[in-house]
Computed example of a mutant assay.
Amino acid sequence: MRFEHLIEVNNLEDPRADVLSREQLWNGLLLRAKAPSLFIPHMDGFAIVEESDNALTRTLDFGKFKVNDRVDFVPMEKLHFHIPAQGEIMESRLEIAIEEPFPDRFFLRFIYEDSAAEEGPEAMYNDFRRSAYKEMDVDSMRLIRQFASQGRLDGPETNEKTLLS
């Protein structure tokens, strides 16, 4: 299955809308990778197993269910999440890219890919998954806006510890 959608970040035609900088948006996306429990409500916990300037590996804890993944970064441009096949989990990928068709007019492009069939019995769940993915991404953007409005995404000191405290 492949699912792709866009979220408009800055609507420059609406004078009431808060405008996020690329840095604020990037810091919010990076926070989604480094502190996933802020963005996934039913997560029991997580651990960052290894981290470098442009990647990290994590273990996400959902109680009986643990998921290992890797997140690669192209700073200020995109995140690429890769979940290898493990147990009952099929291999899947998510790319989140910042697009800027005009100065300061940002969009986020989300591309989900996995090996789920597009037809047959398994395919009936795809619409549900697409809806859940989109809802999670809209919620993530809402949280990023909230953190930005609180001034918590404005500099290099932004990290999961400051937001979790």
Rank of each mutant, 00 (worst) to 15 (best):
M136K: 12
A117M: 02
P121W: 03
K66N: 01
P156G: 12
E113G: 07
E91P: 03
L94D: 00
H42S: 15
I111N: 11
F3P: 06
Q146D: 09
D127L: 10
N159S: 13
Y133D: 11
I40L: 10
A47E: 03
M124G: 04
F102L: 14
V9G: 08
R129M: 13
H5A: 09
N159Y: 03
E88G: 15
D44S: 15
E95F: 10
N54R: 15
R130C: 12
Y133L: 15
L79V: 04
P101Y: 01
S165D: 05
E135L: 13
K64R: 11
E122G: 06
Q150I: 02
N11T: 07
S92I: 02
L12S: 05
L25T: 06
R129H: 11
N10T: 09
F110Q: 01
G151H: 00
R130L: 08
Y133H: 15
G45K: 00
R32F: 04
D18P: 12
H80Y: 15
E23T: 13
L6D: 07
S92M: 03
F106H: 02
A17W: 00
L25Y: 02
V138E: 14
Y112D: 01
Y125A: 15
T59R: 05
D61S: 07
N159C: 13
R105S: 14
D14K: 02
M141N: 06
E135R: 08
E50L: 14
K64D: 15
V71L: 01
E157H: 09
E113C: 10
N10C: 09
M76P: 10
A116R: 15
F106I: 04
L6E: 08
P121N: 03
L163S: 02
Y133N: 14
E8K: 09
K161V: 11
G151S: 01
R93F: 12
S52T: 11
I144S: 12
E95M: 14
A116M: 15
D14P: 01
R22T: 12
E23S: 14
L6A: 06
V74E: 08
I40P: 00
S149K: 02
